[in-house]
């Protein structure tokens, strides 16, 4: 089976210009933050926002500079930081998204998709067609669900 048959197509998408505040409001009733695709005009996938990006943007600028430095001992607690209310409007999706991300092609077999996710420690990935048009999101749970259905477990 290919990922296009198992993926979720009805997904909330955001634009580069969406503000942090609007993004948070969009997902406030979800019981966990899903992987959020960032779409340009003509439906091109230009980035993704994950929980990691959200945590990262709440951290200080200093700790970002130090991310790649050894012995920096950056162990920042997000509760320790001062933050101003205006950052809700000032920070845009463009500032926080990962522009260099992993995506799956629609015809990738589920087995391959699963091993890619394990290798990169991801539990969800975006799915695109050959022209990089966004099609949907596939998660490890979708793959498991298809597998158990096939075996008659559920």
């Amino acid at each position: 089976m290919q990922v296009k048959e198992a993926m979720k197509k009805d997904v909330i998408k955001v634009k580069r210009s969406t503000s942090l505040k609007n993004l948070l409001i969009l997902f406030k009733d979800f019981h966990a933050l899903p992987l959020i695709p960032v779409i340009a005009e003509n439906e091109q996938l230009v980035g993704v926002v994950s929980l990691d990006n959200l945590v990262e943007i709440l951290k200080s600028q200093e700790s970002k500079l130090f991310r790649n430095i050894i012995f920096a001992e950056v162990d920042e607690d997000i509760f320790d930081l001062e933050r101003v209310p205006s950052m809700g409007e000032l920070i845009l999706v463009d500032d926080m998204m990962s522009a260099n991300f992993i995506s799956l092609k629609e015809d990738t077999p589920l087995e391959k998709a699963y091993s890619i996710m394990r290798l990169h420690n991801k539990d969800q990935l975006p799915v695109v067609d050959k022209a990089n048009k966004f099609l949907g999101i596939i998660g490890i749970f979708d793959i498991i669900w298809n597998m158990v259905k096939e075996k008659g477990i559920a």
Binding site: Q61, I69, F71, E73, V74
Partner: peptide, 23 residues
């Protein structure tokens, strides 16, 4: 050593052009 400098910057919440250049 980054750790000592980083710890001071965080403890005292320093910010400004010296802080960014230092880092």
């Amino acid at each position: 050593a980054p750790a000592a400098v980083m710890a001071i910057i965080r403890e005292y919440k320093a910010r400004g052009s010296l802080t960014t250049t230092l880092l």
